[in-house]
Design a protein around this nucleic acid. Structure first.
Length: 744
DNA sequence: TGGGAGTGCTTTTTT
DNA sequence: AGCACTCCCA
């Protein structure tokens, strides 16, 4: 058991061996956070301080949960299955499945992913005749989620103005609809689980007695509801062990509250605060840059990364004239790195926004370099897969209107929008599902509806006793889905995905057969008499598809350069990292610059990006960039200036190009000076020179707004606009044809 | 019913 | 620019 503690540094060891009390571990990037968390659990068990069944470990992503389980399995000889390890959503689901009656849900309740939720909201708005201009579905969905993530039900949402009151009414209607259909959205999973424990004293008591140790990863990403959720579980005297890094909080925009770290300290009277500051990932030049950057943020809990490794290489800065050139630089450098023997999977290109990947992809493609783009559509989110799943959902629950609406006429079977409208109305007036409504209508309004219902019923009858994969096979065949895509041009990928779905189901069933162990803890009151009895495989598979939609995307090509947003890179590390698009307005993003909170989150994002690199970090930017169909001109990001210049080596020419191995036309080679330092004068100056002799970075005067500096520009001719940072009046976009700007 | 044209949006995103 | 979505007509 002491071998568990080998190779831990003193702080890590201190954290692992803390007594069973609340603790907060502030773990810097690359400081061995996951290791501490898993070793802590292993240590508790090896010490005899806890039994597996007394452990509740919570993460945000399935990937993190999986990794934790895998590491624990390696550390501990014994069965780890008695532990509850999973995501907030996965664990909530588990709780709700076990106690579905008490939670007021049907046993077969289904989970709406974001797209399903949006579809449900749209359907609702249509049924209620709500003007979608005034209440955009997206916005309403966001309102719904935000309310729930604050832990609020409709009656508790504050509504001081008319539109908000209306939104609250719609929230109520939405809830009614979900309840009738037997579906829950992501936020609802957590809220319902929380409420279940809040109002069911025996259950609460049971779980609080059972879990003596609650451990959370990435605590800085938790929202208020998640915080309350944890409080419920740990409220009965369990020890809450939270690991997080306030400097890596980058999900504030979707409700995460860094403040939870402080609130936790205060409310739980945390006596053990441990900082992990030794970094095992990067050379010190990279860490120094990261430290210098993040020092500009206020409100930090304070932390300084250090390493025993040496300084390493300087950071490399490359300023391009335009985005194509920037991308070409990346491709050239990458080629050099590969030639030097770096593995492709150890090289990453990071950007602030997904739209930036295109140019880089193009350059890499032209250079014949294999790459892989992360993000985008995941397997279970593809339309053909969702269609197939919708049939399965109907098999499981005929009253799932989202599924019904999705496939009632797909593939086309003559049930048009008119029929559907009729159905909606009928369903509405009888307060019943679309399925129930079509039972009324089918007699009168034609064969098609009856045929559809018979189809689904037949699928359901046929599914008894057959395997999941076989059931899906039947669905693909009898629904006509496969035939539909087979006959369509350019849809071979979709056919392949459908086959993959059959395969995935087979795999799922093989892996999960009998895999659910009986809990060793006493049964929950009101729980199933058979304990954690295996639910219907179909329901399990559908749940898996909703909650772990990402897993199937993972064809993680190790032999390719990795392209992703900075957000997606959190938790990952690479030998070499290109951090691209370092321009004001892009990174930091213009929508965030306005408020301090936004800017600080951008800076944390930058901090996350910088700390991804182990050995080499490139910072690249471009003076001109194609964005939204227009060329924009921007200043270098302020974040570059926040890094001590002595850590940065300015690179004006790609080494590969210098050696003549590049396809890069010499005429386009940037000059010796760093272009960003002299905006508007290097290649592309023709465009950078705005009307009236104005340039990016130039001080100007405006009759009404006073003194300012030109931040950026877009458009040309009479459309030309400039963005000006005024000393007094803030940031404004001005049309050059209208505004009178004089050089100052 | 389904396709073509017109319109509008475009930061980050896991579950 | 590129994409998703809506609307309207054949």
């Amino acid at each position: 058991m002491s071998s568990l503690l080998e190779n831990l540094n003193p702080e890590q060891r201190a954290a692992v061996t803390l007594p069973a009390e609340h603790a907060l571990v502030l773990a810097g990037a690359g400081s061995g956070k996951t290791r501490v968390l898993t070793t802590r659990i292993a240590w508790l068990i090896a010490q005899g301080a806890a039994r597996p069944a007394e452990i509740l470990a919570v993460t945000f992503t399935n990937k993190a949960a999986k990794e934790m389980s895998a590491r624990l399995a390696a550390l501990l000889p014994l069965d780890v299955r008695g532990m509850w390890i999973g995501t907030f959503h996965g664990l909530s689901n588990r709780l709700l499945r076990t106690h579905y009656k008490e939670a007021g849900l049907p046993q077969t309740f289904q989970i709406l992913d974001s797209a399903d939720q949006l579809a449900a909201v749209k359907r609702l708005l249509k049924a209620l005749n709500v003007d979608e201009e005034r209440f955009p579905p997206r916005e309403l969905a966001q309102f719904i989620n935000a309310s729930k993530e604050q832990g609020l039900r409709a009656e508790a949402v504050e509504a001081w103005d008319e539109p908000t009151r209306r939104r609250v009414e719609l929230l109520v209607e939405y809830e009614r609809q979900c309840q009738r259909e037997g579906v829950v959205d992501f936020a609802e999973l957590l809220l319902r689980a929380h409420e279940l424990l809040s109002r069911n004293e025996p259950l609460l008591h049971h779980y609080q007695q059972r879990f003596r140790h609650v451990l959370v990863d990435e605590f800085q990403d938790s929202n208020p509801l998640q915080y309350r959720w944890l409080k419920r579980f740990a409220g009965g005297g369990a020890a809450l062990f939270a690991v997080g890094d306030d400097d890596q909080s980058i999900y504030g925009f979707r409700g995460a509250e860094v403040a939870n770290l402080r609130t936790f300290e205060r409310e739980f009277g945390v006596r053990h605060l441990i900082r992990l500051e030794q970094n095992y990932r990067s050379f010190s030049n990279i860490l120094d840059a990261a430290n210098a950057l993040i020092r500009n943020n206020s409100q930090r809990l304070g932390k300084n990364l250090w390493t025993e490794r040496g300084g390493g290489e300087p950071l490399r800065l490359y300023a391009a004239g335009n985005d194509t050139e920037e991308a070409r630089f990346i491709a050239d450098e990458t080629r050099t790195l590969l030639r030097q023997g770096h593995r492709p999977g150890e090289i990453a290109v990071l950007y602030r926004a997904n739209a930036q990947s295109r140019v880089v992809e193009h350059a890499l493609f032209s250079a014949g370099i294999a790459y892989r783009v992360y993000g985008g559509l995941r397997f279970f989110e593809r339309q053909e897969v969702k269609h197939a799943l919708a049939y399965l959902r109907l098999v499981a629950n005929r009253h799932d209107d989202t599924a019904f609406a999705r496939v009632v006429n797909f593939p086309v079977r003559g049930i048009g929008s008119r029929t559907l409208e009729q159905l909606q109305e009928l369903a509405r007036s009888h307060d019943e599902s679309l399925w129930a409504a079509s039972a009324r209508l089918s007699g009168r309004s034609g064969q098609s509806l009856t045929a559809f219902m018979r189809l689904v019923d037949a699928m359901a009858e046929g599914c008894a006793g057959i395997r999941l994969a076989e059931l899906i096979e039947q669905v693909l065949k009898h629904s006509g889905l496969r035939a539909h895509y087979q006959s369509e041009r350019d849809a071979q990928d979709r056919v392949a995905n459908l086959e993959e779905l059959v395969h995935a189901a087979g795999q799922f069933e093989a892996e999960h057969a009998g895999a659910v162990a009986l809990d060793s803890a006493p049964l929950a009151p009101g729980g199933d008499a058979n304990g954690d009895r295996r639910a219907e495989p179909l329901i399990e598979f559908l749940t898996y598809a909703a909650l772990e939609s990402g897993e199937h995307q993972a064809g993680a090509g190790q032999e390719a350069i990795q392209l992703m947003t900075v957000h997606a890179a959190k938790g990952l590390e690479f030998d070499a990292v290109f951090l691209t698009g370092l321009e004001e307005g892009l990174f930091p993003h213009e929508n965030s610059i306005e408020q301090d909170r936004g800017l600080e989150e951008e800076r944390r994002l930058m901090y996350v990006a910088v700390t991804r690199a182990r050995k080499r970090l490139y910072l690249t930017l471009s003076e001109a960039r194609m964005l939204h169909g227009q060329t924009r001109y921007r200043l270098p990001s302020r974040f570059i200036e926040e890094i001590p210049p002595e850590l940065i080596q300015r690179q004006s020419v790609a080494p590969a190009a210098a050696r003549g191995t590049s396809s890069m036309p010499m005429a386009h080679r940037p000059g010796p000076a760093v272009r960003a330092a002299t905006p508007g004068r290097a290649a592309g100056a023709r465009e950078a020179e705005l009307a009236h002799g104005l340039r990016i970075g130039q001080s100007v005067h405006h009759a009404r707004f006073g003194q300012g500096v030109i931040l950026g520009a877009e458009g040309r001719g009479t459309d030309a606009r400039v963005q000006v940072q005024f000393t007094q009046a803030g940031v404004k976009w001005l049309a050059l044809s209208v505004a009178k700007l004089t050089p100052a």
